[in-house]
Simulated assay, not measured.
Amino acid sequence: MTPSDAHDDNAGRWSDLERPPLRAAALRRALVRPGRLWTSLEVTAQTGSTNSDLAARADTLEEGAVLVAEEQTSGRGRLDRGWSAPPRSGIFFSVLLRPAVPVERLGWLPLLAGVATATALSRTAGVDTALKWPNDLLVTVDGQERKAAGILAERAGHGERAAVVLGIGLNVSLRAEELPVPTAASLALAGAALTDRDPLLRAILRSLESWYGKWRTADGDPAACGLLDTYAAGCATLGRRVRAELPGDRFLTGEAVAVDGDGRLVIATEDGVQQPVGAGDIVHLRPAGPSAGR
């Protein structure tokens, strides 16, 4: 038994029968195969952040390393915002990628991960999802869109070993009283037909491998590989009035009209200007009320 499998038989805090442990060995058999993207897969009982762990080992790992945690104690979202959930209540993992594409197209990686996750959940869990630019996945609970997953991409490694660590946190079985904030959600609360984390994780990783392969083959061109159209079709942000809060207490308000070739959100302001903003430029993106002329 490998260290990553050892927790499978743990008792105590890991004995919640409604939340069985992931089967690391079975996941490896299904996903880690010669000639495929995923080169290693480790499941750990607890860690601070899977993104931080992979980033620290980026110079020694091959592309396609996958690290999954049953519990994260210091999970992070964009701008170091916290992400927490009870043990085994979700799917929390990071992957190490070395995409040989133009650097300006790397901003598409979190959007690609959103499309891959949404595609997998629609097919496997029977849940309708929507994407909130740039890195959230929404489900509908009691008629309201709520966040069920977050995505974080970070640079890692040095020189020829430079890489991107892509992390995904998905709430699966959280109950209403366990939600960290009222605007959060889980697959269970959204009425998912399946909440077994093993097939869900397999489906997400296979979908991620497929989309990443098409995107990389197209040299990162989101239009050529179909990613741009697919993202736009599933993006709840487009067509809505938004307020982009920028550093220095600045803000930009208007209608989100498109996502451009570099993954930036294009906002049409009331003075007729179409202004693209990147994920790194935004502190918050919030809904905005109707303009005075509407």
Results as ranks from 00 to 15, higher is better:
Thr124Glu: 13
Leu201Gly: 02
Leu97Ala: 04
Asp281Cys: 11
Pro34Ala: 15
Pro102Ile: 07
Leu61Val: 13
Val103His: 08
Trp215Arg: 12
Arg29Ala: 10
Val273Pro: 02
Leu79Tyr: 11
Arg36Tyr: 03
Asp229Ala: 15
Ser40Phe: 00
Leu201Lys: 02
Val127Asp: 00
Gly263Ile: 04
Pro290Gly: 12
Glu42Ser: 06
Thr44His: 00
Ala163His: 04
Pro222Lys: 05
Asp281His: 14
Ala176Leu: 14
Ala116Asn: 04
Ala176His: 13
Ala192Gln: 13
His284Arg: 03
Thr60Met: 01
Glu62Pro: 02
Glu177Val: 15
Asp281Met: 12
Gly82His: 00
Gly126Asn: 01
Leu37Ala: 05
Asp80Pro: 03
Phe93Trp: 11
Gly143Thr: 06
Asn10Gln: 03
Arg155Gly: 09
Pro20Val: 10
Thr119Ser: 12
Leu200Ser: 09
Arg202Gln: 14
Leu200Val: 15
Val273Gly: 08
Ala130Arg: 10
Glu145Asp: 07
Asp271Tyr: 08
Ala113Leu: 14
Ala25Ile: 04
Asn135Glu: 00
Thr117Val: 15
Leu27Tyr: 02
Glu209His: 00
Arg243Thr: 15
Leu170Gly: 04
Gly143Ala: 13
Arg88Gln: 09
Leu67Lys: 04
Gln274Ser: 14
Gln275Thr: 14
Gly143Tyr: 10
Ala223Pro: 04
Gly12Thr: 08
Ile282Met: 11
Gly12Cys: 13
Leu54Tyr: 06
Thr230Asp: 13
Leu131Met: 03
Arg146Gly: 03
Ala224Gln: 09
Val68Thr: 06
Ala218His: 03
Gly150Pro: 09
Asn135Met: 05
Ala185Leu: 08
Asp271Leu: 08
Leu200His: 07
Thr230Tyr: 05
Cys225Pro: 08
Arg155Val: 00
Ile204Asp: 02
Arg28Thr: 10
Ala69Glu: 07
Ala292Gly: 15
Ala69Tyr: 02
Trp38Ala: 06
Ala130Tyr: 05
Ala6Asn: 09
Trp14Glu: 00
Gln72Pro: 15
Pro34Val: 14
Arg123Ala: 11
Val164Gln: 05
Leu166Tyr: 03
Thr129Lys: 01
Arg36Ser: 04
Gly254Pro: 12
Gly289Gln: 12
Thr195Val: 14
Gly293Pro: 07
Ala268Met: 13
Gly12Ile: 10
Leu61Cys: 09
Arg206Trp: 13
Ile151Met: 03
Gly126Arg: 02
Leu174Phe: 12
Ala113Glu: 03
Glu245Val: 07
Ala45His: 07
Ala26Arg: 10
Glu177Ala: 15
Asn171Ala: 09
Asp219Val: 15
Ala153Gln: 06
Thr230Gln: 12
Leu37Tyr: 10
Ala188Asn: 07
Leu152Gln: 00
Ala116Tyr: 01
Thr47Cys: 13
Ala56Met: 10
Val273His: 10
Tyr231Gly: 00
Thr183Asp: 13
Arg19Lys: 13
Ala224Ile: 11
Glu63Pro: 15
Ser207Trp: 00
Arg216Gln: 09
Val164Glu: 02
Pro20Cys: 13
Asp16Met: 05
Ser40Val: 01
Gly169Arg: 01
Arg206Thr: 13
Leu79Asp: 05
Glu178Met: 11
Tyr231Met: 01
Ala113Thr: 13
Val127Ser: 01
Pro34His: 14
Asp142Glu: 11
Leu179Pro: 01
Arg88Asp: 05
Leu252Asn: 06
